[in-house]
Structure formats: C-alpha cells, structure tokens
C-alpha cells in the first residue's frame, strides 16, 4: 500500500458527507447542500485533476460552478440554535472533575503525533513514504495523528462514532462559511496572479514615487508590502510583486540596499499586514468564529496595536540597517 495525500482529502470528504447528512436529517437544506458540495470537491478532486491532465476540462468547469454555488449559498447559512441545558453543563463539570488531566492526552496526540510522524517519515522505507514531499508528508502525518487522537478521545470519553460526528457538526456549524474562506481566498490569490493584478499594482506604485528619494522608496516599499498583503491576505503573494516592482530596481539597484536584510525585513513588514486583514481568513476570521466572538473582526481589532508597533520597528530597522 502506498500512502498518498489524497487519502487525507478523502477522509475530510467522508467527515463532510457525515455532517451534510446530519444537516439533511435536521431539514437544514442550505447547510446540507453547502457541506455536500464541499464533500464532493474533496472526494472527487483527484479524479477531476487527473481528467484535466488528460485534457478533459469539463469536470474542472463543473467544480468551478460548484465554487460559485458555495459562494451563493454561504449567505443563507444560519447557526442552529444551541440550547445550553443544565444537564449538559453538569455533565461537562462532572467529566472535568472525573477525567482531569487525562482530558489533555488526546488533544496532545494531534501535535506530538504529527511531529513524530513527520520526523519518522524519511526513515520509513515502505510504500514510497520516504519519497513524499515535505508538505505532503506533514499533511499525512496530521491526518494520521487526528485519526489516532479521535480514537483516543472516543475511548477516554466512552463516546460513539455518532457522538463524534455530532460534535464535529456542532463545531463546523459554529465555523460556518468561515471554514471555507481560506480555500476561497487561496483561489482568489491564484486568479489575481493569473490576471496580472500584481504587476499592475507594482507598476502603479513605481510610477507614483520620486525615485531619487531613498525615504520615499522605503516608504513606498513598506506601504506596498502592507497594502498588497492586506488585499491578498498573504505576504508570500505580495513579496515577489513588490520586490520586482520597487525592491530590486529602486532599493537595491539604485539605493544599494543590502539584499538579505531587505528581503527578511520586507517579508516581516508584509506580516504586519497579515495581522490587519480579513483576507487572511485562517488566522483572523476562522479564530473569531471558533471563539464565538460576536464581532467577526474581533481578532483583527486585538492585533492592530501589535501590527502598528512592529511596522514602525521594521521601518526603523530597514532605514538604519539595510543600507550600508
């Protein structure tokens, strides 16, 4: 047997199917359709990709229609009313005092299991595991660790598979469309890249600044990194664009900035933008949903002072240390 990253996606697909069926039984059809379409993307994604590799684009186009459908349904998702019964509350308090620190064990299996599997991976000469790429190996390790952790949690809490699905459905319902946003934003980033949005922005920035002034160039570079990261939700997308537009030709070419310092500090300046944007959904919007904040931008609000301080510090570091 060869372990492949697709198995992890299929596992996600199965979990999503279970949640979709649960919503269907509760007659929440918009929710059932939403998780159902997503389940199909996870279960059939590899078939679609291999069809595309053989020249058949129709399955990818159907997936594209599915993405648009997800966007349209997202607005109709409402949280199921959760009645916090006294019995529920009592059971949790009883569980907390009965199980104590044992409750941490399954939760810790996820990170440490992932770590152990990732470290072992190059030494497993079985089924081509050692040849997996780093990112794929990490995903498979996470998947395995999650399966083990779920089994441990079911054992510890004496729960059934049905309980596990119900709890997953409850958390997924709290996340709602926010769960999907990281994927949609990654897609938007790819579309922006394919349609030349990045080059257009770098072009406009470079055309708008007085290139003789080192200060103007530094400020434009930093502001561009932050603004473009805020738009794309990802400093990785902003970096090549701003470096090609302003960093290389102006700061390094004309003002002789030191490349290593400018690269590292430029990227970190972009990270200040990541702290400020709803487009970095997995860091800013998903946790607001997970923590059940009424304000979806609550996490961003909590990060504004940190981001502004670090932006100022980065600017000073670039100004004083990046130029010989």
């Amino acid at each position: 047997m060869i372990l492949r990253v697709e198995y992890v996606y299929w596992l996600c697909g199965i979990v999503l199917v279970a949640c979709a069926l649960r919503e269907l039984r509760a007659k929440r059809f918009a929710h059932a359709a939403f998780w159902g379409i997503l389940a199909a993307i996870f279960l059939l994604g590899d078939a679609v990709k291999s069809a595309a590799a053989h020249g058949a684009v129709l399955p990818e186009q159907i997936a594209g229609v599915g993405v648009i459908a997800l966007g349209l349904i997202a607005g109709f998702l409402r949280r199921a009313p959760t009645e916090e019964s006294a019995a529920e509350h009592e059971r949790r308090a009883a569980g907390a005092s009965r199980l104590g620190h044992k409750l941490f064990m399954p939760a810790l299996i996820i990170p440490f299991g992932t770590l152990v599997f990732t470290l072992l991976q190059p030494f497993v000469h079985l089924g081509g595991i050692a040849d997996l790429g780093r990112a794929e190996a990490t995903l498979i390790a996470l998947g395995l660790a999650c399966v083990l952790a779920t089994i441990a949690a079911m054992q510890l809490t004496r729960s059934s598979v049905g309980n596990a699905i119900a709890e997953t459905g409850r958390l997924l319902d709290a996340l709602s469309w926010a769960a999907l946003l990281p994927m949609l934003l990654a897609m938007l980033g790819a579309v922006f890249a394919a349609t030349g949005v990045g080059e257009a922005i770098a072009h406009l920035t470079a055309a708008a600044i007085p290139v003789q002034s080192r200060l103007a160039c530094v400020l434009a570079f930093a502001a561009g990194m932050v603004a473009f990261t805020v738009i794309m939700g990802n400093a990785f997308a902003a970096f090549p664009v701003m470096m090609a537009g302003v960093g290389l030709p102006l700061l390094i070419g004309q003002h002789h900035a030191q490349a290593a310092a400018l690269g590292a500090l430029g990227m970190l300046t972009g990270y200040c933008g990541t702290l400020l944007t709803p487009m970095a959904a997995n860091f800013n919007i998903v946790p607001a949903a997970l923590l059940e904040l009424r304000d979806p931008n609550g996490v961003i609000r909590a990060q504004v002072p940190t981001a502004l301080w670090l932006l100022a510090i980065n600017l000073l570091l670039i100004w004083f240390f990046a130029f010989p």
Binding site: R92, P106, I110, A149, A153, S159, E167
Partner: peptide
C-alpha cells in the same frame, strides 16, 4: 477539519 472530532468530543467531556 480533521482536528474537530477530537476537540468536539473532549469539549463535550469538559
């Protein structure tokens, strides 16, 4: 997504 069953079950148990 795959972390949710574990976290959900443990939360239910307190």
């Amino acid at each position: 997504l795959l972390t949710l069953p574990t976290i959900g079950l443990l939360e239910r148990a307190g």
